[in-house]
């Protein structure tokens, strides 16, 4: 475990945590559902994918052989996140949630 590998793993970990935190802050602050849908489904997925890549790099260099099963989580998340976002948007349309207009209260 050289210092270079450790630096790369740390970089990916902090980058992934930053993206996940950005997604959650978006879910916390944005005004209506359709804008809140953007943060968690894109930014958080990228963050967790980055952390899984960091884990794959770490275990590859720690055990001495290529360890790719963390990439499985990344792949699965990248496939399923758009599907769940699509289902959430369809459910919100079905519930007739509306976008927040300027200067009006939220209709929901």
């Amino acid at each position: 475990m050289t210092i270079f590998i450790e630096f790369i793993v740390s970089f990916f970990l902090v980058l992934g945590a930053f993206f996940a935190l950005a997604g959650s802050i978006g879910s916390y602050r944005l005004p209506d559902f359709f804008s809140r849908l953007h943060g968690p489904t894109k930014s958080t997925t990228l963050g967790v994918g980055s952390m899984a890549v960091a884990s794959a790099i770490y275990f590859s260099f720690q055990s001495g052989r290529i360890s790719l099963h963390e990439v499985l989580i990344t792949l699965f998340l990248f496939i399923t996140a758009p599907i769940s976002a699509h289902f959430l948007a369809k459910a919100a349309l079905h519930q007739r949630l509306h976008q927040k207009k300027e200067g009006t209260e939220k209709i929901s």
Partner: peptide
């Protein structure tokens, strides 16, 4: 539901 979805993804992290 979106919050629960995000919570399980963060739990994976």
């Amino acid at each position: 539901i979106l919050a629960l979805d995000t919570m399980y993804i963060d739990a994976i992290a």
